[in-house]
Design a protein around this nucleic acid. Structure first.
Lengths: 243, 243
DNA sequence: CGACATGTTGAACCTCATCAACCGACGTGG
DNA sequence: CCACGTCGGTTGATGAGGTTCAACATGTCG
């Protein structure tokens, strides 16, 4: 269904599925028309590299659907995911000439891309758009700092629970079974165990063990590998943020 | 000496010590005049609370001198520093009605404060200022993500070395002895061991031990509690980011 | 079917947290 | 003036939580 909305948007941003949630929401109708001519859809498969780090920036994008990870890698190969982007999030770094991170699709991804020069021009001529980008960045910063607390101070159990809770809130998703009662959730993890580990500052094995423990306790159910059920979001939240 | 510059600035922003490095650098001379009337200096002692979290925002500020820590605390008392602000950095959260974090002085601090409403008015009427704030926030986000890698993937030794290296670069400070040869550094730590631990996601004891080890190896010298000498910045950097 | 990627489980090891004792500097009040 | 408590910091002993290494299970694709 997002696909259909996406196809409409190929001809006009005004009908785009993420029209109001994305930064484009700041634009007037005329500006949207201009952006329509600027924008171009691009599709990615899981694992596809979207932006290589240390490379010149060639485009900006809104994420129409799917999940993108931003990752840092050290010289000796350690990896840490430093950001996860979902539908309607903005991908790219304004006012820089190199991508600071490595961006990779973790699911099927559909982007609405613009050339960076055209977009920066729009940005300069449109303070509302810039304000929207600014507020967006402030929110990202808040999320990032929240994650610093997790990385520095939470144990493996709390980390995994926090991650599941975040995904559950972010992806009020495809019903696994009719409609869900409030306080429960059901979703498909958009990340492999390896990605989850890189996100939480853990190893694959620890993530797997903690998931097993949570399952045994009945805090979650693991339906089929990546499909997770949460019978009581409040309980999961209590595990994620104890006391 | 910063004090003197600060006193000048009390009468006019045009002569402020941090005039060009702070966001005010975006302002024209007339706007600076207006800001001069708006701004008010405030002094804090180490440990003073500057902003309480979850409280209404009453002011924004530029840091004239000193160091401010931004901290998150969980319900059960764990703490994590999520940001360190130095001279010329901006303190406050635009477009929000509550402070997202707790801000505390870790050294003597001099702020140049503005009422938030007056500043936001200036912000809206001045796209250049807003752009400067925006770019500022983007840089903070980059720094924050760098720190995520440290918290998630570095061991205690690397964390402490990274911290020392960062301070050494940030504070090309008061010579402990004549002028320093390039590649060396000498500075006073602006944080207690407890703060360093909260910054690095470690305990006080681990920080202390790692400092002792680095000293025994000759990578640093600990002159007098908080005064640190670094004979070879490159070597410290190699410890911070191995391989 | 075999090859490969993804995920789970077990056992051994190691880093770092925890608990505790101690030190020196500083300030305060008897 | 000195005893005392407090604060910031160091050092030691011990153990838990997570990593590492290894084996195995499961699923998918040619």
């Amino acid at each position: 269904m997002l696909e259909i909305a996406g196809d409409f948007a190929r001809t006009t941003c005004a009908q785009c599925a993420i029209r109001h949630r994305a930064v484009c929401g700041a634009l007037s109708n005329e500006e949207l028309m201009a952006l329509t001519r600027l924008g171009r859809f691009r599709d990615f498969e899981p694992g596809d590299v979207i932006l290589a780090d240390q490379e010149p920036i060639d485009f900006f994008a809104n994420i129409v659907s799917g999940v993108v990870k931003l990752e840092k890698t050290s010289a000796d190969g350690r990896q840490q995911i430093v950001g996860l982007l979902f539908s309607s999030d903005f991908l790219g770094r304004a006012y820089a000439h190199e991508n600071p991170y490595f961006a990779q699709a973790t699911t099927k991804v559909k982007l609405c891309t613009f050339s960076n020069s055209a977009f920066e021009k729009l940005l300069i001529s449109n303070p509302d758009l810039e304000r929207r980008m600014f507020i967006n960045t402030l929110n990202e910063l808040d999320a990032c700092r929240e994650w610093m607390f997790l990385l520095g101070r939470k144990n493996a159990r709390e980390k995994v629970a926090t991650f599941l809770h975040m995904i559950a809130k972010r992806q009020p998703l495809i019903g696994c079974g009719a409609h869900q009662s409030p306080g429960t959730a059901c979703f498909e993890l958009p990340l492999t165990r390896a990605d989850i580990a890189d996100f939480l500052g853990l190893t694959i094995e620890t993530v797997s063990r903690q998931l097993t423990i949570l399952k045994k306790e009945g805090a979650i159910s693991i339906l089929k590998g990546r499909e997770i059920g949460v019978p009581d979001l409040e309980r999961l939240h209590a595990i994620a943020d104890p006391e």
